[in-house]
Design a protein around this nucleic acid. Structure first.
Lengths: 226, 226
DNA sequence: ATCTATTGTCTCACTTTATGACAATAATTC
DNA sequence: GAATTATTGTCATAAAGTGAGACAATAGAT
């Protein structure tokens, strides 16, 4: 067995489409089972490397911002019946994959990516991998819904750090786009003027000369993070 | 083997003696090696249960506040030479304990306890377990110094939550003591009046009639968390 | 040229925080 | 037992931050 037994990772991959926050969810062939993208760690691989490779395989982007935010270590969190169903539906050898039905402690991560850069690709066990609005996530297997909830909570607590907006937005963006990211994450509307004043006072934004054009009104400045 | 292989936990146990923040560090017999208290997880045990038991064994207190704050998953973090030295110095069977020299992914925790309640007890491999001032932590084995640094960082970020002061202080305390906890954690002095006003406005404190006596000045009120 | 929608900025009221001042008081000292 | 000392709880004022609205500027549509 090339993997570290009983240890896995799962990843809540956040993207922002300009309006709402979304996450990537995969569906297994012929089972109706939904799950977070996840995987295992090879015996000589760093955790970070394993997760990076997993995210890259499924989204095609490298060097994603990743935060490993919590372990889920309940011995009862495994769901061997669902796992067996997935293996059977994919004609996998049950004997050989028995270890997958055992107990797993999983390392919960969240990733922040620029929605537009992504071309989601299902893995060999999965039918599809798609974006789901954070407010309409389907029932997921095992404790994956809990992992999503906790990831969102952590994200909300960390929103003041510029690194978050940086990873959900293109390199140059308008003040309005930045506000929309905040609103999508916090799930509340913010006051335009106060938001703008606050952001500018933080001294983390660089204003650019070139404006954003194409709409029938005053063109907004473009900003990037310093 | 009754433990989950390649997985361990380590714990930064914080206490507050009224002046400075301290942590518990253990020293292995005849080796001069210092380390954080840690351990392994049994195959059918929850992570939380394992850590709780470990902390209880060494401090004698149950139901400690524990936050599992980060995984350390670098495959190079193991130090088989030091581990062998510890086993040899304790006359342990090297063959039987070979697994301990392998690679470990460790789950970093921090615990907050009331300094006065504690009677630290070394485990069977260790000489001693003692409080060390957070500013004079010795060189620890493996990446344990990094774990301490990260724990302190996380603690600083979480200080506004009442749960932290609650676990580092006795049930009733003065405003000054509370301020000293904040100052020790943040490593900076705070303004007395602003601090007091802020704490009272948070509506998390209960003021008691009984005052704290024994000093040659106006007696401060005692408070507890609501 | 005029209109429309949105932007950047300003103002004023209100809230929160910083900083200093001061009276209250428990134990100590005389 | 009166004066002293150190520290506490609270207030006063100044400074900084935030909420809510107003208004001029302007890129493209009409």
């Amino acid at each position: 067995m090339k993997f570290i037994p009983n240890l896995s990772y799962d990843c809540v991959i956040f993207g922002f489409n300009g309006k709402t926050l979304k996450i990537l969810i995969l569906e297994y062939h012929n089972t109706g089972l939904f799950a977070l993208p996840g995987g295992f760690i090879k015996k000589n691989q760093s955790l970070q490397d394993a997760v990076n490779k997993g995210v890259e395989e499924r989204t095609g982007i490298k060097d994603v911002f990743l935060d490993q935010f919590q372990i889920f270590g309940d011995p009862e969190r495994a769901d061997p019946i669902a796992m067996r169903r997935i293996l059977e539906a994919n004609n996998q050898d049950l004997k050989k994959n028995e270890w997958m039905m055992g107990r797993f402690i999983t390392v919960g991560h969240y990733a922040l990516i620029n929605y537009e850069d992504v071309d989601p690709k299902p893995d060999h066990l999965s039918d599809s991998i798609d974006w789901y609005d954070i407010n309409s996530v389907p029932k997921l297997m095992m404790d994956h819904n809990e992992i999503v909830d906790r990831a969102l909570e952590v994200l909300r607590n960390n929103i003041s750090e510029k690194i978050i907006g940086m990873n959900l937005l293109p390199p140059k963006f308008t003040m309005k786009q930045l506000q929309q990211v905040f609103e999508a994450i916090l799930d509340q509307t913010l006051r335009r003027t106060s938001f703008q004043r606050k952001m500018l006072s933080l001294d983390i934004l660089q204003r650019h000369e070139k404006l954003f054009e194409g709409k029938a009104h005053k063109a907004p400045y473009l900003y990037s993070f310093k």
